[in-house]
């Protein structure tokens, strides 16, 4: 082995001190392509295979638009509610102590761990007119199961951990000295919150919101049991119905729309997280 040549090579490419780059990157790319990229492309190929005009015809049909509006609308509302209550929960977990706090903290992750179908039947059982909660709400004229409200409830469940878990570290990290300074300068609790804490929090709030929203949009298992399925009112993505009608071009067209929107969301979230982190970097 010509040691001079090897040393020279090593100096030019310092990253290759550790072996296995080619192997691991190659394997990663192959696995990723075979299992994710190529299968996903099948949706796009199939849907555009029937032509652009058919694509628009399917996607612009009122029922499809109504269901997309419902999916995105319900997800939006659920994500907003999660932001509101998530902030309270995160605040309480970070700032206060109370009995069983560790247990409460652990249970936040339940929606991550519980299968969606289980959540679906449990929520339907709870909110149906004869369920524990549904029975309490019925006399008040509030119907939850089989209405858009039921869908929102299911989506609150699935999105809950995202906001709390995004906010907790940021709240944890807050320098309480600034708040205390504000207090000594005469700011009330609410003012201190609005002027001092909220500005630091809002990137995390935004990220948590976006994550909860993205998660909610794609949700199926927990919603399908509780949704009323009424066309134009409480029907989530008629993707499934199109599939059952052997309408592949239609099903894939809807899938393409949902995928494009979800990917856009995801890239947006990643960009947001990058921007947030850089912002924090600048602060230091």
């Amino acid at each position: 082995m010509a040691s001079n040549a090897t040393t020279a090579i090593k100096e030019r490419t310092p990253r290759r001190v550790l072996p296995g780059f080619g192997l691991t990157l190659g394997y990663t790319m192959v696995y990723l392509s075979l299992l994710v990229l190529i299968p996903l492309s099948a949706v796009f190929v199939r849907s555009f295979g029937s032509g652009w005009s058919h694509f628009w015809e399917v996607v612009a049909a009122p029922r499809v638009l109504a269901s997309l509006r419902l999916s995105f609308g319900a997800s939006l509302i659920a994500a907003l509610i999660n932001v509101g209550f998530g902030l309270i929960v995160a605040w309480v977990l970070v700032r206060y102590t109370f009995p069983f706090k560790r247990l409460v903290d652990a249970i936040i992750d339940l929606p991550f761990a519980l299968p969606t179908a289980v959540a679906g039947i449990a929520l339907t059982a709870l909110y149906a007119p004869n369920g524990w909660l549904g029975a309490q709400l019925a006399p008040l004229g509030i119907k939850v199961a089989f209405t858009p409200a039921g869908i929102v409830v299911a989506l609150i469940f699935v999105g809950l951990p995202f906001v709390v878990r995004t906010l907790q570290p940021v709240l944890d990290d807050l320098d309480q000295e600034v708040e205390q300074a504000a207090a000594t300068l005469g700011a009330s609790g609410a003012q201190a919150f609005a002027r001092v804490i909220l500005p630091t929090l809002w990137p995390a709030l935004l990220t948590g919101f976006a994550l909860a929203f993205a998660r909610a949009v794609g949700e199926y298992g927990s919603v399908i049991f509780i949704a009323g399925n009424m066309p134009m009112k409480s029907e989530i993505a008629p993707l499934f119905t199109k599939l059952e009608q052997y309408d592949y071009a239609g099903a894939t067209a809807i899938a393409v729309v949902m995928l494009v929107l979800s990917f856009a969301l995801m890239f947006g979230i990643n960009a947001l997280q990058n921007w947030t982190a850089t912002r924090h970097g600048e602060r230091r």
Binding site: T124, A128, P129, N130, F146, G228, N229, M230
Partner: peptide
């Protein structure tokens, strides 16, 4: 007059009978 449109016959029966709708 239909409040819930299940995707299957069995689902509709469940809605009527079990869920009381």
């Amino acid at each position: 007059n239909v409040p819930v449109l299940d995707s299957g016959a069995r689902g509709a029966t469940v809605t009527f009978v079990q869920r009381g709708i």
